[in-house]
């Protein structure tokens, strides 16, 4: 049904303004010996509201750097990032983030964790209500009074997702959120995430190493080159949900992406990969 288009630039056919514009962003780091690492080179991406963008690439391709800049934890060496037309000025609740190591606050209960971002804008009772709703949405309503240390990795990540979604941000940034989980839990959480996203259409920028995960989740996949990172491939994925991993179209899409990646992986391994920098 769906053909993956191999284009280097996503066509500007939409009516609304892009939610996120990444305009010729470059990023350099200085390493300990005084050398320069070029993590990103002149990357430009426009992301529309409600898109589920997955970024894949080899190690060192700059995807985490990009996400950190979107999160406001770092700024471009040159170029500009705008969200809703405004330049980024540091982290903000409108750009929520889900981390690979969950980052739940261990001194708070599960429900207090989910309420955390709501305390400034809601009364305690209202915050609790919203938080419970989200906890139940991820299927963890019964664990509201537990502390994070009693939860498994998969459950913690569901709480983290609930916590971020509860604050109703415009953009949700996800940094390899399922990377630490086993394959079965991963699958389950991917399904949960899609379920939530389908009801609460947020703009999602999702980073992963897993091609299968990218094809399963994304309605737009961006493949980065090896360092210095640039956009190699930027294509929509129009497969209908729920996607079947075994279907022919799924396989085809994966193959296309794998081939593009293999090219870049080869470059990575030919470089001196002992520079200590991940992307």
């Amino acid at each position: 049904m769906a053909i993956v288009e191999q284009v280097s630039q996503y066509p500007e056919t939409s009516i609304s303004e892009p939610a996120i514009t990444i305009n010729r962003v470059s990023k350099q780091f200085h390493d300990d010996e005084g050398g320069v690492i070029e993590a990103l080179r002149s990357t430009s991406i426009d992301i529309k509201e409600g898109e589920f963008v997955v970024v894949v690439g080899p190690s060192g391709c700059g995807k985490s750097t990009l996400l950190n800049m979107l999160g406001g934890f770092d700024s471009p060496s040159s170029g500009q990032i705008r969200v809703d037309g405004e330049p980024i000025n540091g982290p903000h609740i409108q750009r929520g983030m889900v981390f690979q190591d969950y980052a739940l606050f261990p001194w708070l209960t599960v429900i207090d964790n989910v309420m955390f971002g709501l305390r400034k804008t809601h009364s305690k009772a209202a915050a609790r209500e919203v938080a419970m709703k989200w906890l139940e949405l991820v299927g963890l309503g019964e664990f509201a009074q537990k502390h994070p240390l009693h939860l498994s990795g998969g459950m913690k990540q569901r709480v983290a997702i609930a916590r971020t979604f509860a604050t109703d941000p415009k953009v949700i940034l996800m940094d390899e959120p399922f990377g630490a989980l086993d394959a079965l839990t991963r699958r389950f959480l991917q399904q949960q995430l899609l379920k939530i996203w389908s009801e609460h259409r947020k703009t999602v920028v999702f980073i992963t190493h897993s091609v299968q995960e990218a094809v399963y989740l994304a309605n737009r996949v961006i493949i980065m080159t090896a360092r210095p990172g640039q956009v190699k491939l930027d294509a929509p994925i129009n497969l209908p949900h729920p996607r079947k991993v075994t279907s022919a179209e799924f396989r085809e899409t994966e193959t296309t992406i794998f081939e593009a990646l293999d090219e870049e992986m080869a470059k990575t391994f030919s470089l001196d990969s002992a520079d200590g920098f991940s992307d």
Binding site: G71, G72, P91, I93, A103, F105
Partner: peptide, 15 residues
């Protein structure tokens, strides 16, 4: 203090 906790706090409204 784990720096990722601080980042989480920042993305949850600690401005």
């Amino acid at each position: 203090v784990d720096p990722v906790l601080l980042r989480a706090g920042q993305t949850l409204g600690c401005s």
